[in-house]
């Protein structure tokens, strides 16, 4: 099981803060994950309509979309950051 966590407008559009999920075998990279999630319903379609803008962290570290998801305990999806 992998824990998926959502923040800011990604969280609002998906309608939940987190979920535990068994990732299908064909989901090998972050990009695969975003495209697969997008097919899970209209709330995911709305949150991930432009997957290239979504930032991703695996086990609380930033990764790019080519990163492998194998072994990830926690994957977070969020918009570009606006702190400071």
């Amino acid at each position: 099981m992998t824990k998926l966590i959502y923040f800011a407008w990604v969280r609002e559009r998906i309608g939940k803060t987190e979920e535990d999920i068994d990732l299908p075998a064909e989901v090998k990279t972050v990009r695969d994950l975003l495209l697969w999630l997008k097919s899970r319903g209209e709330e995911f379609e709305s949150a991930l309509q432009h997957p290239e803008v979504i930032r991703v962290a695996i086990n609380q570290e930033h990764v790019d979309h080519r990163e492998a998801v194998a072994g990830a305990r926690e994957i977070a999806l969020f918009p570009p950051m606006t702190g400071g």
Binding site: F7, A8, A76, F78, P80, M81, T82, G83
Partner: peptide, 8 residues
Amino acid sequence: LKSRAPFW
């Protein structure tokens, strides 16, 4: 911090 710290 502006572009990498996870705050929104």
